[in-house]
Every structure is written in C-alpha cells, then in structure tokens.
Design a protein around this nucleic acid. Structure first.
Lengths: 211, 211
DNA sequence: CACTACGTACCAACTGGTCGGTATGTAGTC
DNA sequence: GACTACATACCGACCAGTTGGTACGTAGTG
C-alpha cells in the first residue's frame, strides 16, 4: 500500500482495467471471461484466482470506476470556484468537453451494465446504482449550497436535480450510441445547462457576444 | 390481408412479441434463441424458418416496436389539442403516466438494445437509431410549430429539443433500473416539463394552487 | 514449509445455427 | 374433378464452437 508497493500492475488490476473498457464496448453479457483474460494479458487461472466469478469482477470494476471518477472530478479545476452554482456549471462544461473520441471511451460503465443486468444480476445492479448515486450525491451538495446562496425556493429538490443531471448524461450516451455521433449528446448537455441557468435565474452568457 | 385473414398469430408474430418482452427484461446478448422460442411457444425450426438469424429477429422486433409506438402515440388524446405546445406537454404527461409497474414493461426496446450492440451489431444499431429518431421526428414537428406560434427565437433548434426529450426518457429508464424504483424517472420528466415551460415562457400551473 | 500468485488442461452445459423431414396448402393443366 | 408441381409453415434431432467454471500443477517468497 505504500508508495514503494506501487509496482507493476497485478493480474487483478489488469483484469479490472480490461473489464472497464471491454464491457463498455461490447456490453456485459457479450463479453466472455476468455476475452477479458486475453485483453488483460492474463490466463483463466489468474482470473478465478482473483475473482470467484465473472459477476464479481463486474462488481469490482464498478467500484474501481466509482473511485476513478470520484478522483478525477474531485481534482477538476472547477472545484476551486467559489460559487457552488459555478461549480455545477463547471461540472457540466467538463462533462460536455469529455464527449470526444470513440463512444466506448466516454460512456459510463455503470450505466451500460445496469441496462442489461438490472433484472438478472442483483449484485451488479446494486453496484451500478451505488456508483451513479454516489456521483450524484456530490452534485447534490453543491446544488443545495447553490440554492441557499442564490435564495432559490422551489418545488424541486437538490437531490432530484442532481439525479436529473445523471439522467441526461446517461440518456445522452444512449443517443450518441444510437446515432453513432456525439453532437446529440453535446446538444443535450447544452439543454441541461440552459435549464439550470433558468432555474437559478442566471442569464446565459450571451451566445454571440453582441456588445 | 383481408379482415377474415386476421387469424391466430403466426410463429413469426409470437417470436416478435417474445423478443420485445424478453430482451427488455434480460438484454439482447443474454437472451438465447432457445429462450425466445420457449417464450413464444415455438420450436427452433420455426424460428429459423422465419428469421435467418437471431440478429434479424432483433431488427424485425425493433421495426414492430416503432410501428406500435407510432400507433399508440398517434392515437393519444393529446394529439387533438389545438396548441402544439399543449401537445408536447401532453406527450410528456402521458410518458410520465406510463412509468408504472415492472421496469421491463415501460422501458424502450431500442434504447435497451442499442446500449449493448452499438459497436458489434451495425444492423441492429441502425434499426434502433431509426426507431428513436423517427419517434423524435414526430415531436420535432410539434416543437417547430410551437416555436412559431409562440414566437420563440432561440439559439436551440426544434430538432435538438426533440432529441433532448428522448435523451431524458432514455436516461430516466437507466436510473429507474439502477435504483429499482420509478420515482427518479418521474422526477426527471417533471424537470424536463419545467424546462420546456420555461423555454416557452409558459407559467407552470401552480404546483399547489394557492389562489 | 506454507502461502500467494499465477499457468495449463480440462469439462459439462449451453450457444447459434443446420438439415432432412412432414403437413397443409394452392395454382395449373387436362 | 383428379393429378402434378411447387410453396409455405413448421418440427426436432443434431453439430461444432463457446461458455463460465474447476482441478491441479508450479514458480517465487518469506
């Protein structure tokens, strides 16, 4: 666990990495254990040494996914902004900017998996739910702060708006997959940003700065 | 093709029906041909008599899905409203009301499938894209009409807003699956409705009618 | 020696798909 | 109306390849 212990990635690490990318590209059920092993450069024996089942790798990968994204959004520049509303908008701008390159590389592991396994693999479903819910919880805090700071009294809750951002992102991934193109996703994040600006009565920064 | 010809459902019909429900419940890859046959009460011979492959059943089922939803939303009461904006809001109210019962019964076949097959089964992806896109096209028309009628000049397009509604619905399905509960989905549709009311400067009908 | 971290060989169950066959039409011809 | 020719709809045994998972061996380390 010390810094000196940070050596070459173990078979476990490589399997988790492989799971995160292969499952996002092909879905959970269509990804075989053999394929995971091949992608990780590891044998089947190693697989079942570290994980009792394919399902348990999925759960572990989801946990790692949560940690990774927590770390990356926690370290993002927008977190240092003073106004919580600015942090929320900064979050959306970052998410929008991330919609680049191959679809499999910006989509969400939890959202992809839960879609197929929600009714058949309860443990994976729980892990995915926790991943998405945990991420939303971070946003919820800033939304609640922003509501206080900007004196917003509303019929909606900070919690529901935080979850709504995740709804939009997950939906944007699906449409991007269906259309094979990211423009839809970007436009949807724009709509979400506009909605939040309207809710907080913040004038949108003039689209085409005319005087 | 005459009315008298409308007899018992053929093996083909039963397989398409089975595909629509089983795939939404378990995902595409996890659904086997044998399972589809069992659910349809049909033999494997019948399956491959009507469909050259499992994939082609998926494509056919997606087509049927589009027809069914076109028929059902086309016949909905809100379509007879005069103001296109009312039709849009009526659509959202209907979609919200549909979020009832088991998750597999209100989620979207196309959205579920495209999530797993977008990178591996191009024909199914196309069919799903067409299904979602076609549905959005119907909304786009009303949104464009509403923009004219209500003199909306905006930086966003009718098309992008129509797609955004689909983004929100698809995302709502994912969150509902992740949380195993429909409240999130309902709340998200509420947020979408509120957004559209704000865009069209229509005062939300007072949440708790206080004079 | 015990323990962890793998590698190799293997298995029963299941996978999508094939194939030879049958039962029931239906159209054409004399 | 009887006979042929062909099509449609369906059956179920079968197949080769793949599946998740197991059993057991071994190399390194303290």
């Amino acid at each position: 666990m010390t810094a000196s212990t940070r050596k070459l990635p173990t078979a476990r690490d490589k399997l988790i990495d492989a799971a995160m990318s292969v499952i996002r590209a092909k879905g959970y059920a269509a990804t075989s254990v053999d394929e995971l092993c091949a992608a990780a450069g590891v044998t089947k024996g190693a697989f079942f040494h570290h994980f009792p089942s394919k399902d348990s790798l999925a759960v572990a990968a989801t946990g790692h996914w949560s940690e990774m994204s927590e770390a990356m959004f926690g370290a993002a520049a927008y977190q240092r902004l003073d106004d919580p509303l600015d942090r929320i908008l900064g979050y959306l701008d970052l998410r929008r900017a991330m919609l680049r390159g191959p679809v499999a590389e910006f989509t969400c592991l939890a959202g992809t998996m839960v879609q197929e396994v929600y009714g058949t693999h309860p443990e994976i479903r729980r892990a995915c739910g926790a991943s998405i819910g945990g991420h939303a919880a971070g946003l919820q805090r800033d939304i609640a702060l922003a509501m206080k700071r900007h004196r917003i009294r509303a019929s909606w809750t900070a919690d529901s708006l935080a979850l709504h951002t995740q709804v939009v992102l997950q939906g944007a991934f699906i449409l991007a997959k269906a259309k094979g193109e990211t423009a839809v996703a970007e436009a949807s994040v724009d709509h979400l940003r506009r909605y939040i600006e309207l809710l907080f009565r913040r004038p949108a920064k003039a689209a085409k700065r005319k005087s």
